[in-house]
Design a protein around this nucleic acid. Structure first.
Lengths: 348, 348
DNA sequence: CTGCTTTACTTAAGCGTATAAGTAAAGTAT
DNA sequence: ATACTTTACTTATACGCTTAAGTAAAGCAG
């Protein structure tokens, strides 16, 4: 199986030069003054022998890995429950790849495995690290950030700490709720995507939901709120539960599309119509949101771009460039489709 | 930013022993006969100083990286178009993580970036590599496999080459088509997930679709076939196109759920009913498949398990254990929901 | 022709670890 | 008491690379 690995020393010997010369040639080191003839010759031999530099050795001597870590805090079952993370990853990866970095993905099932993430940093396995905000501010700010390695947070946190890229999600929540209010709804239910007290940004969105209603003169009604857990089934069950609430809500805001879509299923299965009986608005603008029946009105979040910006911020930090906006928030956008019923309303 | 990194030498000096002793203690090397007292002492000092071994140096001296690569051949826009890959990743990662390996994800946008994947292997950046089958047999078998590093393929290939884990997807296709045939359908359309001639397994599934129909005495009708491209929009458009076909198909088989769901949207948007006017069957059993309206009948593929098995196979190969089944195929399963109309048929 | 600079390399050190080989002291057999 | 083994370490080398420092030959000014 193991075929012999060609080292720079092998190339040097075959080319009749020193190993240093090989290194200078292949790294195009100007100040080494390698003659054109030698350069050509060495390059040819390297090609002939099929030489590829050992990246591990390079990393050791340069004191910096070519990998950037992505730390994901989620149980394995939930990690890719919707396309949020895949989208972030795609954007991030596309940027760092251009700069010769690779993506090292580390999933921490629970906070006990937090240690393994820290070691990723401390063991010099990664030059930098992106962290998902799900962990919560206190964990992130504590040890993670002070390991001498750039850390960028993706996703929303209550406080704007350290370096982060997220979306202006609370404005998104306001747009969603205000849109429903504008359509005349008064009993607007809410399905969160995380159990109470577990995820910071879920709590923040819920607060904003309450505040937006309050601003419209509607007093907060916790009996219209259900706590889900990211996955569709939890959205479905939350909705089934809401359907037992009398009087029925006339609209539902789902904190992610996955759960909003499942909520629509529950409504329709119960023989009610979306949006005529109950209107639904989601959050994320999932790939499938435009292709449900009815198509889902939702808040668009530029997830791919969040990843890209995080990538650019990371590359900057690796080159000691302080980001212009350390806590970047990308705008969200209301996408009106049919599940909210706006198309049924005559605007005179 | 860069806080000083503690090396084993630092620990050695602080503990008043040699660096070798530190290494022996921390790696629990039996034959080194380190006394209990020294052991305790060194461990204490290491903890006090916050020592974490430099993984890069370890990899260099051990001649093996702690990373396992995952090579993804897809344009960035398509890579995570549905949950297939995330599921595989999750399963794979959960297994290799137990053995102290980490996942290095490399996305090759096009076959030109194929080189970057090869270098991943040749540069000793990874101890092993999982490869997605989308690339096709010839690419995989050519250079990739002979770099002296274990390679496991996930997903279907026409030939059973090298080491691979996939699902018995062609049986799945047969089940889907036979189910529709059993419900009395004769004009069964098909929407593939890849343009003609681009992806091996798409072609194989299409062939099986034709063969299954032929076995039932239905002659192949290419006018009932449309070529999509993974994403929902392509399924939607394919279906819109099929709706112009007269006589209309009475059933549609979508090669992935994402496109099948979008096809349902196209059908319903045209004022037709699923399944009464056109029945739909998908493939994958996507998280949302149970929550569409109507719920999608589909072929369940154990994607998470494919990833896990691939992980186990990889760990085996890294320890020179030849897998019992080098080309593992996991069974698929027909999940009957409502989009096929089976629930409307009275079984006497 | 001498002394200084430039060219084109080579030699050597070091990154942080693992581990084979060496060694001094203590223990044990005879 | 001597020889041999065991214990408990230390010393030294290697992994493959980058890069600072060294060097011999050529170029060139005066």
């Amino acid at each position: 199986m193991n075929r012999k690995k060609v080292t720079s020393k092998d190339v040097a010997k075959a080319a009749g030069v020193s190993q240093a010369t090989v290194s200078y040639v292949l790294n195009k080191v100007e100040r080494a003054n390698i003659s054109e003839k030698t350069r050509q010759h060495v390059q040819q031999i390297a090609r002939d022998l099929g030489y590829t530099p050992n990246v591990v050795a390079q990393s050791l001597v340069q004191g910096r890995s070519h990998n950037i870590g992505m730390a994901l805090f989620h149980p394995h079952e939930q990690i890719f429950i919707d396309s949020w993370l895949p989208n972030i990853m795609t954007g991030f990866s596309s940027v760092i790849q251009k700069y010769g970095f690779r993506l090292l993905v580390e999933i921490a099932n629970d906070k006990q495995q937090y240690e393994s993430i820290i070691n990723l940093l401390r063991g010099h396995e990664v030059a930098g690290m992106v962290v998902q905000s799900t962990l919560g501010s206190e964990f992130i700010s504590a040890e993670l950030v002070n390991q001498g390695v750039p850390v960028v947070i993706v996703g929303n946190l209550s406080e704007h700490i350290h370096y982060s890229v997220s979306s202006d999600n609370l404005t998104g929540v306001r747009m969603a709720i205000n849109h429903l209010l504008g359509l005349g709804h008064q009993r607007i239910a809410c399905i969160t995507y995380a159990p109470e007290g577990t995820v910071e940004h879920a709590a923040d969105r819920l607060t904003t939901y309450y505040e937006t209603l309050a601003a419209a003169g509607i007093s907060p009604d916790p009996s219209l709120v259900r706590f889900g857990a990211f996955a569709p089934l939890s959205g479905y069950e939350a909705m089934r539960d809401l359907l037992r609430h009398k009087p029925l809500p006339t609209a539902v805001f789902g904190m992610n599309d996955t759960m909003a879509i499942a909520a629509m299923a529950a409504i329709q299965e119960a023989g009610l119509r979306v949006p005529e009986d109950i209107a639904v608005v989601g959050f994320d603008d999932d790939r499938l949101a435009a292709f449900t029946t009815p198509p889902l009105t939702t808040i668009h979040e530029s997830q791919r771009e969040i990843g890209q910006r995080a990538g650019e911020m990371m590359i900057g930090l690796l080159n000691d460039v302080e980001p212009a906006t350390p806590n970047l928030q990308l705008p969200t956008q209301l996408i009106v489709r049919k599940s909210c019923g706006a198309h049924l309303v005559h605007t005179p």
